[in-house]
Each structure stands twice: as C-alpha cells, then as structure tokens.
Amino acid sequence: MKNTSRIALAAAVALSAIAAQAGQDFTADHYPPQVQSQSTLTRAEVIHELKLAQEQGTLPNYDFTYVSPRQEQASTVTRAQVRAETLAAMQNGGLSFGS
C-alpha cells in the first residue's frame, strides 16, 4: 500500500513538472526568447550620447563606479616602495587572506 501511494505521488509530481513546461519551446534556437527590436540610432550617436551623459553626470547610478581609463593617474610609487610596504605589512600582520 505504501509503495502504491509513493508511486502515485511520484507520478503526480512528474506530471505537474511536465505540465508546468507545457507550451514553452526550449529547443536550441528558441531559448531564451529573443525580443525583436530595431534601434533608430547609429553606433556613433549612441557613443556621443554616452560621452555627453558622462560629462553632464546624468548616467543612472547602479551602485558602482565607472572609471574611465583616461581618468586614471599614473602611480608615483616605485616598484621597490610597493615591495617594501608589502613586506612590512606581512611582518606586522596587516595582510588578510580570505577573511
């Protein structure tokens, strides 16, 4: 009796999973569904609008900072100074790995 109810329950779960997928085409060319759209702007126009929005500060904030490579400044610290700072931090326990 227990086996019969378990088999019936498993069959019901399997059929409900199949029914949940009914009507959806998951073949290789149809997933994920593609939204058809046509842009009216050229690539140059989009780049121009992006640069203009960056200059005006009107880009939406998605909680991350966009840093343009042209805005970065060259380091004034030499490789030897960085190495010395790293070694000093290692000796003082100032480096944290994975925690």
Rank of each mutant, 00 (worst) to 15 (best):
A44W: 05
Q54V: 02
L9E: 14
A19I: 03
L9H: 10
S16M: 06
I18K: 11
R43Y: 12
S75N: 05
Y62V: 14
F26S: 10
Q21F: 13
L15E: 05
A44V: 07
T58K: 02
Q38A: 13
V77C: 07
L15V: 04
T78W: 02
S68C: 05
A84V: 08
Q21P: 08
A22K: 12
F64Y: 07
A19P: 03
A44F: 05
A11Y: 00
V46K: 02
T78L: 02
A74G: 12
T58C: 01
E45N: 01
H30Q: 14
D29W: 09
A53V: 02
D63T: 07
D63C: 06
Q81T: 07
N61T: 05
Q24E: 14
A28T: 14
S68L: 06
L50W: 06
Y62R: 11
D29C: 11
L87M: 05
N61R: 03
Q34K: 13
S16D: 06
H48W: 09
Q36N: 11
I47S: 10
T78R: 02
A44S: 09
A44E: 15
T76A: 12
Q56K: 10
P60S: 01
T86G: 07
Q34N: 08
A14D: 03
P33I: 09
A84Y: 08
L9W: 11
T86F: 12
E85G: 12
L52E: 14
I47N: 12
G23A: 06
I18G: 09
T78Q: 01
T42K: 00
Y31P: 08
L87Y: 07
D63W: 08
A53H: 02
V46N: 07
R70A: 15
A28N: 11
A10S: 04
A53E: 00
Q34C: 09
E72Y: 07
Q36Y: 07
Q56F: 03
S68G: 04
T58M: 00
S16T: 05
Q81K: 02
L59S: 03
V67T: 04
H30D: 12
S68D: 06
Q34M: 11
G57D: 00
Q73H: 06
A74T: 12
A74L: 13
H30F: 15
H30Y: 15
N61H: 09
A53N: 00
A17W: 11
S16R: 00
Y66K: 08
V82W: 15
A8N: 09
H30E: 14
T76V: 12
Q81E: 15
D25K: 02
G57W: 01
H48L: 08
Q34S: 13
Q73C: 05
L87E: 01
